[in-house]
Simulated assay, not measured.
Amino acid sequence: MTAEVRFADWRARIEARLDAALPSSAQAPQGLHQAMRYAVLGGGKRMRPLLVMAAGEVFGASADDLDAPAMAVELIHAYSLVHDDLPAMDDDALRRGKPTTHVAFDEATAILAGDALQARAFSLLADAPVAATLRVGCLQALAQAAGAAGMCGGQALDIDATGKLQSMDELTRMHALKTGALIRAAVRMGALCGHAQEDDLQRLDRFADALGLAFQVRDDILDVEASSEQLGKTAGKDQAQDKSTFPALLGLDGAKAELSGLVQVMEQALAGYGEEADSLRALGRLAVERDH
């Protein structure tokens, strides 16, 4: 089975389970439930749940055990996008090729939808049909990645940096929290479901850290080179908001060289594994070669 076919199968599985896990739009409060489903279903690369599945595959985890963390990390990601797009944050009107949630509904509903998606993510992990120690491990990994020491902290640094010139160290740290922490949690949760040992977890952390940064460097490059139609979101937004980016600090060629270096780090981190890690390798390539 090729990586593309495997990813398509995983995406279909994840989509079906997310659909079943979210409340019906016919159930009151209908507006909130409609907004939750709008923010999650029918779009997105599903990179984070795919990383859960691929990391679990390395250690022979069952697909049933991987379902809850795969859904949970995608719900956290979706909630973060809903909130990031709000006027008080990035003030964006386009996401995944359609109006952002606060534009399609209203700001109050979007805030509540994000809150509810975050709560649903943790309830899915808490109710997962796995050993209690595994549930706690996944809850701990996702909570740390989503909070002030991870994604929320990175977003706060991003807001603080608007209009300021960041150093490479500051920019790298910001994105390690804002983007990288959730990617790292996705990989770690998948590995935990396969009962990976500590040395394996450390190797996969190195892979995930490099992947998270590579994902952001590629995002910054696409923000310069791609159109809004191609991206499905507003192109040139970072430059318009006077934010530091890798191309801004390194130049476009320098940013591409940085991306190549991160590819090497990912390859080295997975060098000790055989074909069981091919899906992870393919996701690494997808992150750096994507055009949207």
Rank of each mutant, 00 (worst) to 15 (best):
V73G: 14
V40D: 11
A28M: 05
V82Y: 14
G43P: 03
D115W: 01
V130D: 00
R37Y: 13
D85Q: 13
R46T: 15
A132Y: 06
S24Q: 07
G153I: 01
A131R: 09
S123Y: 01
Q144F: 10
P99V: 03
A141F: 04
A149S: 13
A55L: 02
G31E: 13
P87C: 06
F105H: 04
G114F: 01
V136T: 15
T109V: 13
M71T: 02
V103Q: 05
R120G: 02
P87M: 10
H77M: 07
G44D: 00
D127F: 13
Y79C: 03
D65G: 01
H102W: 08
T109C: 15
G137H: 04
A68L: 01
L94T: 06
L86A: 05
A146Q: 03
L142A: 11
L157K: 13
L117T: 07
I76H: 00
Q144P: 00
A26G: 11
R135I: 14
G150T: 07
H33Q: 09
G56N: 05
P49I: 00
M151Y: 15
L86G: 05
G42K: 12
G154I: 01
R48E: 08
L50W: 11
G150W: 04
L139C: 10
E74M: 09
L139Y: 14
Q144T: 04
A110G: 00
R46S: 08
D92R: 13
L134N: 09
P129L: 06
I111G: 02
R48N: 02
D85N: 08
A132K: 15
D158L: 08
A156S: 14
H83P: 10
L125T: 10
G154P: 07
G60Q: 04
T101H: 00
G114C: 11
R95C: 04
M89Y: 09
L134Q: 10
M71E: 02
L22P: 00
H33G: 10
L51V: 04
G147D: 10
V40G: 08
E57N: 12
